[in-house]
Design a protein around this nucleic acid. Structure first.
Lengths: 196, 196
DNA sequence: ATTTTATATTAACAAATATCAATGAGAAAT
DNA sequence: ATTTCTCATTGATATTTGTTAATATAAAAT
């Protein structure tokens, strides 16, 4: 059960000791989420971060009744409505499962206990925040510097799990366009496709 | 000289001791940057984070010879080409000064020394990364969920220093439109302005 | 197998935004 | 005061993207 998350932490913290891992593991809880179920709803405070063992999760905003997708997260990565988690303020986004999922959760309170108990967990928290920053920072860059077609191309090349697992109409808002427009771009791309 | 940055850290870390602050201060260096001068150039590795004592700094990308502005940073905040800083890889963005600026720098190497010397600095690093995450995360949200007009309105209400200090044509790419289009939106907004 | 349901495509048209070129206004330099 | 330069505005036109509605396709349910 904890195989992948343990590997994740060992990679993150090469100096992690077995006893540190045990202290961490004691604080983890398992959660099963069925396809379509919510992990966090708009208006609630998000009180945990979730390591995904299995399944794909999605974070999205509701704007004028329409879903605007912010992220699709695959196995072996962390997900949270991190703004809400960090500030203990109500979440503005929703998080749900696009497939039946298996999660390993760490609650806010347990995370604070870990921070106090051992500085290596501060270091883990720092590194995770830094990784999340880099990930979202490159997302802003793509939104401002690439055309919608280039943004879709980027997903094809760099996030293929999204193409395989996420309906096209959800990908559309993720790159900032309508489903109809994405459909047309795809058609254009196949007819203009380079031959290599 | 260190008045504001000291206040920043005390606010960030209520349990910061005077001796901790002294250890930190020893690692800081001052840098003066004239208007238009570069702090970090695309292709170079960014080796420091800069606390802004005075002046406004800008981070931008060059795309097809055009500047796409990613952020404008006012006094008393931290700035860095953080992706490059964290990964020690060449920066993709440029950072320059929009006004004569006074910076307090902390180098990557000195930051690692601080991390090793005292866990409170790990905590500082974590909190700063978390704040940067929240800040950029709300930026993505605005890009995906607001119209260009609403994004400009957001700047008017929440980042007025940008309106006051940054030329309009630079603000345009920051909200993802052309200068001409921003000019038209502004005209439309004044004629449709609510009366309160 | 058949029927429903969800998703994707297409077309016609409308709206938003970009481009190009010209003009205007203000700040900085002489 | 005049000139130069930078930035902002405006107009005409082109391109991109959105909207609406219909149709097609594929997946799920019965």
């Amino acid at each position: 059960m904890f195989k992948y998350i343990k590997e994740y932490y060992i990679k993150l913290l090469p100096d992690l000791q077995e006893k540190d891992w045990n202290a961490l593991q004691e604080k983890l809880t398992i959660q099963y989420v069925k396809k379509g179920e919510f992990l966090t709803r708009n208006g609630e405070v998000c009180r945990q971060v979730s390591f995904i063992n299995k399944g794909i999760l999605r974070m999205y905003y509701l704007v004028d009744g329409k879903e605007i997708n912010m992220s699709f997260v695959p196995p072996f990565e962390y997900l949270s409505e991190y703004e809400s988690f960090l500030t203990s303020q109500p979440a503005n986004a929703n998080v749900d499962a696009l497939e039946d999922a298996e999660l390993i959760n760490l609650s806010f309170d347990n995370m604070q206990l870990l921070y106090k108990s051992n500085p290596i967990f501060e270091k883990a928290g720092r590194k995770i925040a830094e990784m999340l920053y880099i990930s979202i920072s490159t997302a802003v860059t793509r939104l401002l510097t690439l055309t919608p077609e280039q943004r879709y191309q980027h997903i094809l090349e760099n996030e293929p799990y999204i193409i395989q697992s996420v309906p096209q109409y959800m990908i559309a808002s993720y790159i900032g366009i309508t489903p109809e427009h994405l459909s047309r771009l795809r058609k254009k791309m196949t007819s203009t496709k380079p031959l290599n």
